[in-house]
Computed example of a mutant assay.
Amino acid sequence: MKATASTSKLELENLPGYYIRRLQQIAVAIFLQETDSHGLTPVQYSALQGIMNSPGVDQRTLARTIGFDTSTIGSVIDRLESRGLVLRNASPSDKRVRLLTLTEEGRKTLRAVIPSMLRAQERILGPLPKADQVEFMRMLRILVATNNDLSRAPSDPRD
Rank of each mutant, 00 (worst) to 15 (best):
Y19M: 12
L62N: 05
Y45Q: 06
A3S: 12
Q121V: 06
R60T: 15
S151Q: 09
G67K: 08
G17F: 11
S6A: 14
S75T: 08
L100F: 00
A112L: 01
K130R: 12
V113R: 02
G74T: 05
G106A: 07
L40R: 03
N14S: 09
S151K: 09
S54H: 14
N53S: 11
G106P: 03
A5L: 14
Q24H: 14
A153L: 10
L118W: 04
L150R: 10
L62Q: 02
A90P: 07
A5C: 11
L140S: 13
N14T: 11
G126D: 04
R123F: 07
A131V: 10
A47Y: 08
A27L: 03
S46N: 15
A145N: 08
G17Q: 11
K9T: 11
V113I: 02
D132V: 10
M117T: 15
E34V: 03
Q121L: 11
V134P: 05
T109L: 05
A63K: 00
L87G: 09
A90E: 12
A131R: 02
T109P: 05
R64A: 10
V28S: 13
A29N: 12
L99E: 00
V97P: 02
G56Q: 02
L143T: 09
G84P: 07
L48C: 01
T65Y: 15
R138A: 06
A145L: 06
L102F: 06
D69P: 14
K2A: 14
P115T: 05
N14C: 11
E104W: 09
E122K: 11
L118N: 09
A90T: 08
N148C: 08
N148P: 08
L32I: 09
S46K: 12
T41G: 06
I73C: 10
M117Q: 15
V144T: 00
D36F: 07
M137W: 05
T61G: 02
E13M: 01
F68C: 10
E135R: 10
E13Q: 08
G84I: 11
G39C: 02
P115V: 01
E105F: 03
V134L: 04
E13P: 04
P157A: 09
S71H: 14
L23Y: 06
Q121T: 05
S82Y: 06
Y18D: 15
P115S: 03
R64E: 11
Y18S: 12
R152N: 11
A3H: 15
Q133R: 11
K108Y: 07
E11L: 13
P92C: 10
V97D: 01
D156M: 03
S93V: 15
S54W: 13
E81N: 13
A27H: 06
Y19P: 02
T35C: 07
D69W: 13
L143Y: 13
E13K: 05
P115C: 03
S93P: 14
V113Y: 01
R98W: 02
R107W: 10
V134G: 01
S151V: 04
P157S: 10
R107K: 14
